[in-house]
Design a protein around this nucleic acid. Structure first.
Length: 597
RNA sequence: GGGGUGGUAGCUCAAUUGGUUAGAGUACCGGCUUGUCACGCCGGUGGUUGCGGGUUCGAUUCCCGUCCGCCUCGCCA
């Protein structure tokens, strides 16, 4: 076999005069005649033009070259020279070409179901791309994404390594955990009737590594949650997971801010600067969501007091609502001009949108030259002055309202805010708005279960100044958790952990875990906390989402080499599949599913 | 589990109210072509209209069921 001397995509004018050997896939052939054939040869570095020319090469070589087809795998030895036909400015290697002297056909290929020309391949159905993933991944776009992903993980290992973090693996076969997402489970052959679970995260183990005195831990690890996927969510995903000892909240956030600043400098020569902070409740009030996109305005304003003075039944009914000790609210967004894209039809459509969040609708109005016009103008007119003052309205502004329970009104308007921003196309390009969200509540009240549920996870510590109210007013107790949000997407989340067994037991008690339950599920953690646990905390980055932002895609499958579909299938390998009945017997499992056809 | 949307040639799509032999571009195959680079010109092959049933003289089109992709609500500590 001809031995490769250079990568196709790395050849430049400086190589002119050298005899090189390149290997790769035929991207295209341009057969000019029986005596002149151009091919573009592709490897992971890029394309280079190889020319087969009767003037420079023997006839047998030309004859063989004429049989080449797309995606054939070849090795070529030839002389690098300046292109006789003029440079191609579209190619990095466009100034030169390789004049073939030897050609070795390493493998033929069937006609590929995906064309590798960029202008065609971007349009190919995702179903086809997933089935023939090995071809899809050959595309320069996918090669770029996977390379970028590798750069990010390498940067993470370098950065955290320099900061004293040890890379330690944690088990994949663990005990099932209550709380949280649904576990993937694995039957334990050696223990009939018992099961392992695949980790939703290495949470407990990394805390125990702190108890074990490793001080700083990092792992780039797979996590599995058996829940329905979304555009930015897969059942199986990757975290950059870490934990630190003898720290407070500030120390973790500083370390992480350093990481993203370094990463953005490395990737984009972009200075992230200091990362602003917002409290959870402030974020909910202003953005209606716990992961605010601060690249644009359209903030929410509470107009409950003014709305209560109107005769609008929707407002009055909402304000009369009460849930979890919290009254109903009326929230509004001022949409400044230019807002011509928000036609009557679009605004009416927002009510349908709102219904997906269980809200009744989206009342709206517009401030014209002579007061409010359209929509709910007649109800707003009596409180015009107050609304104008509170929302800072000027002529031409549109106002949209949501009136409901606090949770529903806030969430609906928070989602609508993002939709309006997209509809108005006011989200600026090229902006990287990081923000830390802090001071989360420890718990959320579950009305159905009549108990508190941990908002983050049950190992999250209250903030140091909040220990006093943990037992007396758990609903108001704030945690030492923190989320890192980038352009409205949560890319990392973590907390300072509870390192005192008594506090941990108290939290378990609040979320309705009996002592026996807690002992059975997390006994090993509670035990560990008794044997000298240092104060510790950590965070986990969603690597997939991080890569999505960096490469600019809204499809998580694009940043995973072998992703699954929305129904959890791998269209390439056809997983999941049936197992041999013998495997079921061995693992003591009997299926209740109807027989497979 | 709910809602929405889609599945037609290898690929991307079209096909009128249910009506001729299901078309186009591209790919592929053959021929021509000595400076192309989304090469060009000429010709050709290629279809279980996702699958199963039904209505009809006739179904890509209408109905029922089912499978699969995508988006989304629930869910995702």
């Amino acid at each position: 076999m001809l031995k490769r001397s250079h990568m196709c995509g790395s050849l430049r004018a400086s190589h002119v005069g050298q005899t090189v050997t390149v290997c790769g896939w035929i991207n295209t052939c341009r057969d000019q005649s029986k005596g002149l054939i151009f091919t573009d040869l592709r490897d992971r570095e890029g394309l280079c033009q190889v020319v087969f020319n009767l003037e420079d090469s023997p006839a047998e070589l030309i004859a063989l070259a004429r049989t080449l087809r797309r995606e054939f795998v070849i090795a070529v030895t030839g002389l690098v020279r300046v292109r006789a036909g003029g440079a191609n400015p579209k190619l990095a290697t466009g100034e030169i070409e390789v004049v073939a002297q030897k050609l070795e056909l390493l493998n033929a290929a069937e006609t590929p179901p995906i064309l590798l020309d960029e202008h065609d391949s971007e349009k190919t159905n995702e179903e086809i791309r997933l089935k023939y993933r090995y071809i899809d991944l050959r595309r320069p776009r996918m090669q770029h994404i996977m390379r970028t992903r590798s750069r990010i993980t390498k940067f993470a290992r370098d950065y955290f390594g320099l900061n004293g973090f040890l890379e330690i693996e944690t088990p994949l076969l663990i005990k099932t955990t209550p709380e949280g997402a649904r576990d993937f489970i694995v039957p334990a052959r050696l223990h009939p009737g018992k099961w392992y679970a695949l980790p939703q995260s290495p949470q407990l183990f990394k805390q125990i590594l702190m108890v074990a005195g490793f001080d700083r831990y990092i792992q780039i690890c797979k996590c599995m949650r058996d829940e329905d996927p979304r555009a930015d969510r897969q059942a199986e995903f990757t975290q950059i997971d870490l934990e630190m000892s003898f720290i407070e909240r500030e120390d973790v956030m500083d370390m992480m801010t350093g990481f993203v600043r370094g990463l953005w400098t490395e990737l984009f020569q972009y200075d992230v600067g200091s990362v602003p902070r917002i409290t959870y409740w402030d974020s909910m009030e202003r953005y209606g969501i716990d992961r605010p996109d601060t690249r644009y305005g359209l903030e929410l304003t509470d107009v409950s007091d003014i709305a209560g003075k109107t005769e609008f039944a929707v407002f009055k009914d909402a304000l009369a609502l009460s849930k979890n000790g919290r009254g109903g609210v009326v929230k509004a967004i001022r949409i400044p001009t230019p807002n011509e894209k928000l036609t009557r039809k679009v605004l009416d459509g927002y009510s349908e949108f709102a219904k997906t969040f269980k809200a009744g609708g989206i009342p709206f109005t517009k401030l014209g030259a002579n007061g409010f016009e359209t929509g709910v103008a007649k109800f707003c007119e009596p409180v015009k002055a107050e609304l104008i003052a509170k929302l800072g309205l000027v002529q031409g502004d549109i106002v949209v309202f949501a009136a409901d329970h606090y949770d529903i009104a806030t969430k609906t308007l928070g989602e609508l805010r993002q939709k309006i921003a997209r509809d108005l196309a006011i989200i600026p390009e090229g902006k990287w708005n990081f923000v830390w969200v802090i001071d989360f509540p420890m718990f959320d009240w579950d009305d159905e279960g009549k108990r508190w549920v941990a908002l983050h996870h049950p190992f999250t510590s209250p903030n140091p100044d909040q220990f006093g109210i943990l037992a007396t007013d758990p609903g108001a107790c704030l945690s030492a958790g923190y989320d890192l949000v980038l352009n409205g997407s949560e890319i990392a989340g973590g907390s300072v952990r509870i390192h005192d067994m008594k506090v941990q037991e108290a939290v378990f008690g609040l979320i309705g875990l009996t002592e026996a339950d807690a002992k059975m599920k997390f006994g090993f953690l509670l035990d560990a906390l008794k044997f000298g646990a240092p104060p510790h905390g950590g965070i986990a980055f969603g690597l997939d989402r991080l890569v999505m932002h960096v490469v600019g895609t809204d499809n998580i499958r694009d940043v995973i080499a072998f992703p699954k579909t929305q129904s959890g299938m791998d269209l390439m390998s056809d997983a999941p599949g049936p197992v041999d009945p013998e495997q079921l017997v061995e693992t003591h499992v009997r299926s209740t599913a109807p027989p497979l056809v």
